[in-house]
Amino acid sequence: MKNRLRVLRAEREWSQQQLADRLEVSRQSVNAIETGKYDPSLPLAFRIADVFGLTIEQIFLRD
């Protein structure tokens, strides 16, 4: 599943660690999601959407 996490993070000038801290996950998790190696669960996807103030569909895209 594709996502716009890296772009959204860059727009806010957040490092992966800063985003990880906001999401209460490890930096490795953020990296794995950004690079498409891991698709988050629905609860984590909602947390990501909340952090960016967007909907899940605005962040995660169908392949």
Binding site: V25, Q28, S29
Partner: peptide, 8 residues
Amino acid sequence: TQDEFMRM
């Protein structure tokens, strides 16, 4: 473990 990626 709370971090779902690390748990996986």
